[in-house]
Design a protein around this nucleic acid. Sequence first.
DNA 1: TGTGCCAACTGGCTTGAGCCACTTACTGGC
DNA 2: GCCAGTAAGTGGCTCAAGCCAGTTGGCACA
Lengths: 258, 258
Amino acid sequence: MTSTRPPTPQQPSRRIADELRRQIESGDLRSGDKLPSERALAEQYGSARNTAREAIRLLAEQGLVTAKHGSGVFVREPQRLFRFGSDRYSLKNRETGLTPFRLEAKRQGKVARIDVPSITREKPPADVAERLKVSADEESVVHRENHYFADDEPVQIVSTFVRWDEAQGTLLMEAKTGKDGIYGRLEDLGHVMTRVRDEISARMPTPEEAAILSLLPGVPVLEVLHTSLDQDGVPFEVSRYVHRADQTGLLYELPVES
Amino acid sequence: MTSTRPPTPQQPSRRIADELRRQIESGDLRSGDKLPSERALAEQYGSARNTAREAIRLLAEQGLVTAKHGSGVFVREPQRLFRFGSDRYSLKNRETGLTPFRLEAKRQGKVARIDVPSITREKPPADVAERLKVSADEESVVHRENHYFADDEPVQIVSTFVRWDEAQGTLLMEAKTGKDGIYGRLEDLGHVMTRVRDEISARMPTPEEAAILSLLPGVPVLEVLHTSLDQDGVPFEVSRYVHRADQTGLLYELPVES
DNA sequence: TGTGCCAACTGGCTTGAGCCACTTACTGGC
DNA sequence: GCCAGTAAGTGGCTCAAGCCAGTTGGCACA
């Protein structure tokens, strides 16, 4: 069982990064501790400041440290995850009168805020059109954009799509959608959420997403493309969730189908 | 509705990156196309080679381009996702005699290979111990490490943990676990998989993971901490899946619980 | 016709220098 | 005692230059 363990990397930047990583993992450097300055590291390892800087970039990319301009580079606190359970779709949660996000926030003792930057009639993206079974060439959907905050920290961006022909003239076109949110209104239209399909992927954020979510460099996003199916198996709502991955996790608990 | 759109970034590296990104998104540069060389970009934009290089790094971090040493920088092909459905746990798949991974690979017309680098008795990590309800201070588990390949491309790393007191002396300690894999053997021990709990997160890979999965810079990993519960609600197996996010997605389809 | 070599090009990485913006702590004046 | 101003320290970013390593294609030679 020979494990591949390169003894000492030949590249100075890797060597510095590895040494710092070792100190972090061994506990010599603890969460919140300040690393030596770039200039100090460079001198200590006999290399240029740019090389020490590159080493820190490698660690930041890995999410181990975070730099604060003018102040220093610090070992990142392991983030507590804001967890979204599969039961967020559960009907019994309706009794609380809270939307899934507000419920989850309350569970974790945080204050939820939801911004609605835009509600517009649009041509749907191809993947949404396919799942909602509408035309991608017409303005066949209403796109509701939402930004979610917990304790004023941005947590997720959600784009919700419903059919224009159904949403037209209803509260689905308004920022305030009334009791039980959009799912309440969709139920009024005869769609009872019966099954859900969540397609999950991870990637690096676009610059826009990084800005909205205040993402530090090296933090990926979790993307969930969610489809709601009604009692007849008809898809009636598709949402794209973009979560910051350093603070968010997903939890799915489900029965094994025989 | 004033959208925050900085017209032209002040930093040269961002400016070059944004211009290239625009060309990629507009289709001027297509998948597989070669970008101008670092030296050419530098001259074209009147900046230093390092600055052009930084611009390319920004794009690579975002997963838009990939550099080939000695050859050039190319627009990355959008990867087709190797999708793992929640039905991978379904009992009916047993009839095929294939393990979930082999089944998924076959579905996508790929050849599956599974390496088993190690099977060892160990102290479990804290999160595994908590979910398997065993002591984290003793060598209470057997750790099976697996590397999965599809068409010889590394796809995922899996660490499976089962109780040592159950695995001792069984095929669970061997590379070849017999019919239906480890779930077959665990069923022999009286554990019928009845519910599963998948905890999903995303992060940047460790250097080891990047090496095993041949990950390009800027590609995150999807981590799934999976717990199998038997007919009595007893957790009998915990696995940590590490997927490369550029080629892997997860699919969960589930009924909404009333 | 083939083949092996080599030059030119590519990205990978480092150096050492400089300027800027932000943070912090100290210090002097009120 | 307070507060404004300042100097020193920090990371952010760029420049210009150089050497190395991998790739490619053409050219000379067999």
